Simulated assay, not measured.
Amino acid sequence: MKKYLVIFMIFSLQILFSQDLEYAKRLLKLANTNVWLEKYDEASQLVDEAKKILSKFNSWESKYWTAVADETLGHIYFQMGNYDFAEKYYLEANTKFKELISSTYKGSQYATKELIEQSKEIGTVKKGQKELSQNKKIVNLSYSNVTGFLNLPQDLESFVAENSNLNKFPAELYGKKNLKILVLSNNRLNDAVLREMPNLEYLDLSNNNLSNVQFDLATIQNLKFVNLSSNRLKKVPIELISMKDLKLVDLRNNQIPFSEIANLIQNLPNTTILFDRYEKVEEEEE
């Protein structure tokens, strides 16, 4: 009888651990969504809550997700412009990844190292100023009137032009193989074709007049975050369905029928998809 009681207790503890771990993982996923939405205080609180849960356990998986939590804190401080704290948490995450991840899982370790270098390089590019960072890999033209030819460095890694009166997609961005971050929000773009940016991970085209967005899947392969909110889209860009590595897609404030949203959700079950609430209405026949 005692033997069965011990087995039952072990089984019950395993169930509780599994439930707590899944809850902590959901908290971290929600924290990353809040980082995307620039709700940094909420994101930080969610990470702290997840770390409290994870600290109760000593398994490989709980330690791994604790490292992910530190990496998320690095993202939060990085986006807030606190590069010292960002580097601190990236280093902590990297140390934990080193301890945990075998040679078959080096991707996350190297990605974290890259984020550390990125936090060092960006320095202090201020919003609203037309300037380059010292290494000229970061270009910020926000709140300036961007017209004419853009003379951009070939090894460009980040290009930001918010509220810059753009009415067409800058062709000078094509062929920038190191470009990872592209922000063209709050402009007057009517259409955009994304191609020849093989390392692009973060794309923000929100608050434009976009009715058409296309992706060349052969040369756009690494997207993780896509923000197309507040445009005039009437359908989901068909190429998104094939992008299985996407972490978040924001399609709010468009004119996309729910049938298209549902199809995207079905094809990207591991992606967070933000969309409008829909009333139950009959869709117009074409």
Rank of each mutant, 00 (worst) to 15 (best):
K106L: 11
E162A: 09
Y174K: 12
L141P: 09
N186G: 10
L28K: 01
N209Q: 08
V35S: 05
T147H: 02
Y110D: 10
L210C: 05
K98P: 00
N267L: 15
S158G: 05
E117L: 03
P257I: 05
L156D: 12
D41W: 02
Y4I: 15
H75R: 15
L28N: 01
N186P: 10
D276S: 09
N190W: 02
N208C: 04
G128C: 02
E61C: 07
L223V: 00
E114L: 05
L16K: 13
K88N: 13
D84E: 10
L141N: 09
N199Y: 10
T66Q: 13
S206Y: 07
R195H: 07
E260P: 04
L194G: 03
W36I: 00
I220A: 08
V183N: 15
E196Q: 15
D216Q: 14
K168E: 12
S185Q: 15
D276P: 13
L27H: 04
N187Y: 05
I10D: 03
D41N: 14
R232F: 00
M1W: 10
K29G: 13
D84H: 02
L100R: 10
Y64L: 13
L233W: 05
K176Y: 02
K2Y: 09
V146W: 02
S206Q: 04
Y143D: 14
E172A: 15
N82I: 11
T33C: 04
N94V: 04
S259K: 11
N145K: 06
E42H: 12
K63A: 09
I101K: 13
G148I: 06
L156W: 12
L73S: 00
Y77S: 01
K224I: 01
G74S: 11
Y4N: 15
K244T: 07
M1K: 12
I138C: 10
Q255W: 07
Q221C: 08
L152K: 13
N209L: 09
L233A: 04
T147A: 04
K52I: 03
K51C: 11
L132E: 12
L132M: 14
K180F: 03
F275Q: 01
T33D: 06
R232P: 00
N187Q: 08
E284F: 00
E196W: 09
I101R: 12
K224E: 06
N222F: 05
L100S: 09
V47I: 12
L54M: 01
S211D: 14
N94Q: 12
N208Q: 07
N165A: 13
G74V: 06
T112E: 00
F8I: 14
N190V: 06
D48W: 05
K130P: 05
L166Q: 10
E279P: 09
L100F: 11
N267D: 06
K180G: 03
S229D: 02
F57P: 08
K244D: 06
L233S: 03
I53F: 03
D276F: 06
L5D: 09
Y110I: 13
Q134D: 14
V213E: 11
L5C: 08
I76H: 03
A31F: 01
S142T: 10
E157Y: 08
K234S: 07
L173P: 05
S18I: 08
G123A: 00
T272Q: 14
Y202S: 01
L73M: 02
A262K: 15
W36C: 02
K25W: 00
L54C: 02
I7E: 14
F57S: 10
L16W: 03
Y23K: 15
F159H: 08
N270F: 05
K98Y: 02
N254T: 03
L251V: 03
Q79S: 11
